[in-house]
Amino acid sequence: MELRNKIRLSGSGGQGLILAGIILAEAAILDGKNAVQSQSYGPEARGGASKAEVIISDGDIDYPKVEEAEVLLSLTQVAYSKYVNTLKKGGTLILDSSIELSKNLPFNVIKIPILNTAVEKIKKPMVANIIALGAIQAITEVVSIKSLEKAVLNRVPKGTEELNKQALLEGYNLIKEKNRK
């Protein structure tokens, strides 16, 4: 109905997707845009598939929920299966490499080793959400690099700033490398 970027972040409980959603929304606000973040609560939010949603817009955001997402991030197979049908045709699907895909999807599919990069390169599985944010930025440019970095640093625990900056950089690089190939 109105021009806006609707992003759904999905994965399993504990992967920090709600925090990632909050950071993304805060980055958009730093850019001077409007942003709304919402999430699922209750049994759905514990374990299993978890999701957070962000809408970013230059104008007013009326309806705060995402029905058809324009961007979908899935970090797990379960989350992918559950939410892939909520992605708009022609939308951007960002997946962890571990996820097996159906064929002939009507999306712009980008598969990158988010979880593996967290474990192997940074040796901290919990920064997968920040790596994913770096990748989302590089793909969609829905927020600026500067604001995203600031938003990340505003939200992460003290003493983990460098770690998270590195995670963000690894996220950008996953896309840059992919584009080079």
Partner: peptide
């Protein structure tokens, strides 16, 4: 309501 109570916005 839960919609306004739980949503985050600017």
């Amino acid at each position: 309501d839960e919609i306004v109570g739980h949503m985050r916005e600017k």
